[in-house]
Amino acid sequence: MTIDYRARISLIEQETARLAALAGDLSVPVPTCPGWTMDELVTHVGRLHRWTVHVLRERVQERIWPARIPLGLAEGGSVDAGWLVAGAAELLDTLRATDPELEVWTWGPDRRASWWPRRMLSEMVIHRADAELALGIDPVVPAEIAIDVIEDHLHNLPYASWVTRPLAELDVEGATIHLHATDAAGEWTITQGPAGRITWARGHDKGDAAVRGPVRDLLLLLYGRLSPDPLTVYGDRDLLNRWLTTAAL
């Protein structure tokens, strides 16, 4: 079942509320984002919210980096859960008022406003999981959402130049990696193509390396938040480790 535009907006709202509830002590280190504390994590997510609002409201047509977008803090102010929620509320209002077919800039392959809620949902799910892991909480991600975020990752990865360049240096063109969810109807085969770009397809196949496990774990694996060690791995483990380390967004 596909998650549609409006459903993704509602899920962004839920995920932001969950992250805000975790953002008490902002000095807590976030091991899955090396060098970050909860403060940096909250700042990053809140900046992404404001970046998306700017792109959609201004109908931006050329690349603009998130760092160029003001954080909306008073002089001497600092981020907190309230600041995060306020930015999310502005984002939600903007998404609900925007035609999904509106042509705007994205860093992925789709130049429509509908790209943004899917991408922001992915960001929220992963960073909520980061916060929970930092606090010793085992993240729960419903299978439908985990599948959507996995496919969003694979859909956009060929256009992430900061990833494709180092992938090209692995010199593994033609290699295949198969992911098999054991608790949901999800299987994907990733093929490493030229210039570091990948292609992927749903369905069962045999890869040079294959991983079986719960779909949530496959999601965290793809994003570099989980080692393959607790999962079932077949084939070329060295290839798998090198590819995963390089391909994590």
Rank of each mutant, 00 (worst) to 15 (best):
G207T: 14
T182G: 06
V211Q: 02
H180G: 03
I190M: 02
A209K: 12
I198K: 02
D183N: 13
T199S: 07
G196E: 03
G203L: 09
G174L: 06
L179M: 12
A185F: 05
T191A: 05
I198N: 05
I177M: 05
D205T: 15
G193F: 02
D171T: 09
T189C: 01
I198S: 08
A181V: 15
D205R: 14
A181P: 15
W200F: 10
A201H: 08
P194S: 07
A181M: 11
E169G: 03
A209Q: 09
A201E: 11
K206R: 13
E173H: 11
D171H: 13
R212A: 11
K206T: 15
L170E: 10
V172H: 04
I190C: 01
R202T: 14
G174F: 05
L179P: 10
R202W: 09
H204Q: 09
A209D: 06
T176Y: 00
H180E: 09
A201V: 14
G186C: 13
L170Q: 09
A195K: 08
P194F: 00
A168D: 09
A168C: 03
V172W: 01
T191L: 04
K206Q: 14
L167E: 02
R202K: 10
A195I: 00
G207Y: 07
G174C: 06
Q192S: 07
A210W: 00
V172D: 04
W200M: 04
H178Q: 10
P194R: 06
D183S: 11
K206V: 15
V211D: 01
R202S: 15
